[in-house]
Deep mutational scan, measured.
Amino acid sequence: SSGGSSILDRAVIEHNLLSASKLYNNITFEELGALLEIPAAKAEKIASQMITEGRMNGFIDQIDGIVHFETR
């Protein structure tokens, strides 16, 4: 797709992000992006959206560029 990722790509990214949230206590956007094979800024945006929508527990430290995952 030309304008970003398809629905399937997005679903795969979100699935992998949720998997990462179970493996890590926290991770930088750079590391997360590398893990998900997407730019760091996109990793931040998707993580932020999932947390806001209540689909993933955690919070974002924008100063240090880190996602902190919280286990249920």
Rank of each mutant, 00 (worst) to 15 (best):
residue 27 I to K: 04
residue 10 R to L: 14
residue 67 V to A: 03
residue 17 L to A: 02
residue 27 I to V: 07
residue 65 G to H: 09
residue 58 G to K: 01
residue 59 F to K: 08
residue 17 L to E: 01
residue 72 R to T: 11
residue 53 E to R: 05
residue 42 K to E: 15
residue 43 A to P: 00
residue 26 N to R: 14
residue 70 E to K: 10
residue 28 T to C: 04
residue 37 E to F: 09
residue 48 S to F: 11
residue 47 A to H: 00
residue 59 F to V: 08
residue 32 L to H: 00
residue 70 E to C: 15
residue 47 A to L: 10
residue 32 L to A: 01
residue 29 F to L: 11
residue 22 K to T: 07
residue 44 E to I: 15
residue 20 A to K: 06
residue 49 Q to M: 08
residue 52 T to I: 12
residue 68 H to R: 07
residue 53 E to A: 09
residue 23 L to M: 11
residue 67 V to E: 00
residue 14 E to K: 03
residue 66 I to M: 10
residue 4 G to E: 14
residue 69 F to E: 01
residue 14 E to L: 05
residue 6 S to W: 05
residue 31 E to C: 10
residue 44 E to R: 13
residue 51 I to Y: 02
residue 19 S to H: 14
residue 21 S to L: 08
residue 53 E to M: 07
residue 47 A to S: 05
residue 40 A to I: 06
residue 1 S to P: 12
residue 50 M to V: 02
residue 5 S to R: 08
residue 8 L to A: 13
residue 6 S to Y: 05
residue 69 F to C: 03
residue 62 Q to F: 14
residue 59 F to C: 10
residue 63 I to Y: 09
residue 1 S to E: 13
residue 18 L to H: 05
residue 44 E to F: 14
residue 45 K to V: 10
residue 66 I to Q: 06
residue 26 N to C: 15
residue 18 L to Q: 05
residue 20 A to C: 08
residue 13 I to E: 04
residue 41 A to P: 06
residue 68 H to T: 05
residue 70 E to N: 13
residue 42 K to Q: 15
residue 28 T to S: 12
residue 4 G to T: 12
residue 34 A to D: 07
residue 57 N to Q: 11
residue 3 G to N: 12
residue 15 H to R: 14
residue 40 A to L: 05
residue 30 E to M: 08
residue 8 L to T: 11
residue 33 G to E: 05
residue 6 S to G: 11
residue 49 Q to S: 08
residue 57 N to D: 09
residue 64 D to Y: 15
residue 60 I to H: 01
residue 66 I to G: 04
residue 9 D to R: 04
residue 51 I to T: 01
residue 14 E to N: 03
residue 36 L to Y: 04
residue 54 G to F: 04
residue 15 H to Q: 14
residue 25 N to V: 09
residue 10 R to S: 08
residue 41 A to M: 08
residue 43 A to R: 01
residue 14 E to I: 08
residue 10 R to I: 15
residue 33 G to V: 03
residue 2 S to W: 04
residue 16 N to L: 15
residue 24 Y to S: 03
residue 47 A to R: 00
residue 62 Q to K: 14
residue 65 G to P: 04
residue 15 H to V: 09
residue 30 E to C: 06
residue 8 L to E: 10
residue 51 I to Q: 03
residue 70 E to A: 10
residue 54 G to V: 02
residue 67 V to I: 15
residue 38 I to C: 04
residue 36 L to G: 00
residue 12 V to L: 11
residue 61 D to Y: 08
residue 16 N to H: 11
residue 5 S to Q: 13
residue 45 K to R: 11
residue 26 N to F: 15
residue 6 S to H: 13
residue 56 M to H: 01
residue 61 D to S: 10
residue 46 I to K: 01
residue 39 P to S: 13
residue 64 D to E: 15
residue 55 R to T: 06
residue 48 S to K: 12
residue 60 I to Y: 02
residue 56 M to A: 04
residue 72 R to G: 10
residue 58 G to M: 03
residue 8 L to V: 12
residue 34 A to I: 12
residue 3 G to D: 13
residue 58 G to A: 12
residue 45 K to D: 10
residue 59 F to A: 05
residue 54 G to E: 04
residue 4 G to D: 12
residue 40 A to C: 05
residue 23 L to T: 07
residue 32 L to I: 03
residue 50 M to C: 03
residue 50 M to T: 01
residue 47 A to C: 10
residue 45 K to W: 13
residue 3 G to C: 13
residue 27 I to W: 05
residue 71 T to G: 10
residue 33 G to T: 02
residue 52 T to M: 13
residue 45 K to A: 14
residue 25 N to S: 14
residue 25 N to F: 09
residue 34 A to K: 14
residue 43 A to G: 02
residue 50 M to Q: 01
residue 36 L to W: 04
residue 61 D to F: 06
residue 70 E to H: 14
residue 41 A to W: 15
residue 3 G to H: 12
residue 21 S to F: 04
residue 58 G to W: 10
residue 10 R to E: 10
residue 38 I to R: 00
residue 19 S to M: 15
residue 18 L to P: 00
residue 9 D to S: 06
residue 66 I to A: 06
residue 10 R to V: 13
residue 70 E to W: 14
residue 55 R to Q: 05
residue 49 Q to E: 15
residue 67 V to M: 09
residue 10 R to G: 07
residue 23 L to H: 09
residue 9 D to I: 06
residue 39 P to A: 06
residue 52 T to W: 10
residue 7 I to W: 14
residue 70 E to Y: 14
residue 12 V to W: 14
residue 46 I to H: 04
residue 31 E to P: 00
residue 52 T to Y: 10
residue 68 H to N: 06
residue 49 Q to L: 08
residue 22 K to M: 09
residue 40 A to T: 07
residue 28 T to D: 03
residue 13 I to K: 03
residue 20 A to H: 06
residue 11 A to F: 10
residue 42 K to C: 14
residue 43 A to C: 06
residue 30 E to H: 08
residue 68 H to G: 04
residue 19 S to I: 14
residue 16 N to R: 15
residue 35 L to P: 00
residue 20 A to N: 04
residue 26 N to D: 05
residue 54 G to C: 06
residue 12 V to R: 13
residue 58 G to Y: 02
residue 34 A to V: 11
residue 43 A to S: 03
residue 11 A to P: 06
residue 2 S to Y: 04
residue 18 L to M: 08
residue 55 R to M: 06
residue 32 L to C: 02
residue 46 I to M: 08
residue 7 I to K: 10
residue 52 T to K: 14
residue 50 M to R: 01
residue 71 T to F: 08
residue 59 F to E: 05
residue 46 I to C: 04
residue 18 L to T: 05
residue 26 N to W: 15
residue 2 S to M: 09
residue 23 L to V: 11
residue 66 I to L: 08
residue 46 I to R: 01
residue 67 V to Q: 01
